[in-house]
Simulated scan of single mutants.
Amino acid sequence: MKHAILISALALLAGCVTAPSYDPAKSDRGEGYLSQQIEAGRYRVSYTDKDPVRARNMALLRASEITLADGKDWFQITYEGADSDYSGRSGGGTSVSIGGSAGSGGYSGVGVGVGIGFPLGGGSSAAGKTTHTMEIVTGAGPKPDKTEAYDARSVDMNLRVTSG
């Protein structure tokens, strides 16, 4: 019985050690979040991670944190895009970026880009990273009835559990 408890505790500890953390990036290309205020109530948020889904979720989490710190209730994504960096691979590589935007007057757009990389230095076989970037505006009161608008408290509560 003691061994089963010890094995369970070690497995739980190993899971905590290997889980990626939610932290600010230590550099422009480092894993983690970066955020910048563009003007009052408008921010640019990005998150870099090896997992593209986690990169987007953690960018949403950071957007919710900024919104709540701003004393606001909701945020709306006005631009969103992802950039995958596989430049660490030897022999070059490709990357695909997908972006979208929503502007005033109900106009929106989506774009897709494909790039080819050529290694100019000594490349390694390092795993690629994805940076998910979004620009948001924050607001108070009832959330707009738009798919690009998010309730900051709900996002914070739901994604904080998965942030590691």
Rank of each mutant, 00 (worst) to 15 (best):
3 H>D: 09
4 A>C: 00
4 A>Q: 09
5 I>F: 08
7 I>W: 05
7 I>K: 08
13 L>P: 00
15 G>I: 05
18 T>I: 14
18 T>P: 00
19 A>S: 05
19 A>D: 00
21 S>I: 14
24 P>M: 06
24 P>H: 08
24 P>V: 10
25 A>Q: 07
25 A>W: 09
26 K>H: 07
27 S>N: 02
27 S>L: 00
28 D>T: 13
28 D>W: 09
28 D>Q: 11
29 R>V: 11
30 G>H: 04
30 G>V: 05
30 G>Y: 05
32 G>T: 07
35 S>Q: 11
35 S>H: 12
35 S>A: 12
36 Q>A: 10
36 Q>S: 12
36 Q>W: 05
38 I>N: 08
39 E>V: 08
39 E>Q: 12
39 E>K: 13
40 A>H: 06
41 G>D: 09
41 G>F: 11
42 R>Q: 10
43 Y>W: 15
43 Y>M: 04
44 R>C: 01
44 R>I: 01
45 V>P: 02
45 V>W: 03
47 Y>S: 07
47 Y>N: 12
48 T>R: 15
49 D>C: 03
49 D>I: 01
50 K>G: 15
53 V>H: 04
53 V>F: 06
56 R>C: 02
57 N>Q: 14
57 N>D: 13
58 M>Q: 12
60 L>F: 11
60 L>N: 08
61 L>R: 02
63 A>W: 03
63 A>F: 05
63 A>M: 07
65 E>T: 02
67 T>P: 00
67 T>E: 01
67 T>H: 02
69 A>G: 07
75 F>G: 04
75 F>M: 03
75 F>E: 01
76 Q>R: 15
76 Q>I: 12
77 I>Q: 03
81 G>R: 13
83 D>T: 14
83 D>Y: 13
87 S>R: 15
87 S>Y: 10
88 G>Q: 09
89 R>S: 08
89 R>M: 09
90 S>L: 07
90 S>T: 09
92 G>I: 07
96 V>S: 11
98 I>W: 02
99 G>A: 11
100 G>V: 01
104 S>P: 00
104 S>L: 02
106 G>T: 09
107 Y>K: 12
111 G>K: 05
112 V>I: 15
112 V>N: 07
112 V>E: 12
114 V>A: 10
115 G>Q: 10
119 P>Q: 10
120 L>M: 13
120 L>T: 14
122 G>P: 00
122 G>K: 13
123 G>E: 07
126 A>I: 06
127 A>E: 14
127 A>H: 01
128 G>K: 01
128 G>F: 02
129 K>T: 15
132 H>Y: 15
133 T>P: 00
133 T>Q: 03
133 T>A: 02
134 M>N: 01
135 E>P: 08
135 E>K: 04
136 I>S: 01
136 I>M: 04
136 I>E: 01
137 V>A: 04
138 T>I: 06
138 T>H: 03
139 G>M: 06
140 A>K: 15
142 P>M: 04
142 P>L: 07
142 P>D: 10
144 P>F: 12
147 T>S: 14
147 T>G: 09
149 A>K: 10
149 A>P: 01
150 Y>S: 08
150 Y>T: 03
151 D>K: 05
153 R>S: 14
154 S>F: 10
154 S>V: 15
155 V>C: 06
155 V>I: 15
156 D>T: 03
156 D>S: 13
157 M>V: 06
158 N>L: 05
158 N>K: 10
160 R>N: 11
161 V>Q: 13
162 T>F: 12
163 S>T: 13
